[in-house]
Amino acid sequence: MEDRTYYSIDPRGKLRCVKCGVSLVKGGARFLYLDNGFPVELPVCPKCGFVYVPEELALGKVLAVEKALEDK
C-alpha cells in the first residue's frame, strides 16, 4: 500500500545539490518525532539523498506538528 504523504513540496528546478551538482527532485522522506513517523515528499538530491526542509515548512507545519505531539 502507498504511504499517505502529509506534505508534498516540489523543488521546481530551483534547488541544486552543491556536493553532487544535480538538481533536487521531489522525493520521499519521513519526519520522525517522539516515536511517531510521517511520510512526506520533499526536495531531495537524487544522488546523495540530501533532504531539504524549507524554512517556511520548518517554522510552519513542522513546528505545529511538533507542538501537537509534544503535548500528547
Binding site: 522525493g27 519526519f31 520522525l32 539523498g49 533532504v51 526542509v53 524554512e55 520548518a58 517554522l59 513542522v62
Partner: peptide, 15 residues
C-alpha cells in the same frame, strides 16, 4: 542571512 531549526528528524524514505 538566516537560520532556523526543527526538532523533528527527517530521513530519506525509499519508496
Amino acid at each position: 542571512h538566516s537560520a532556523y531549526s526543527h526538532r523533528m528528524n527527517v530521513v530519506r524514505r525509499q519508496s
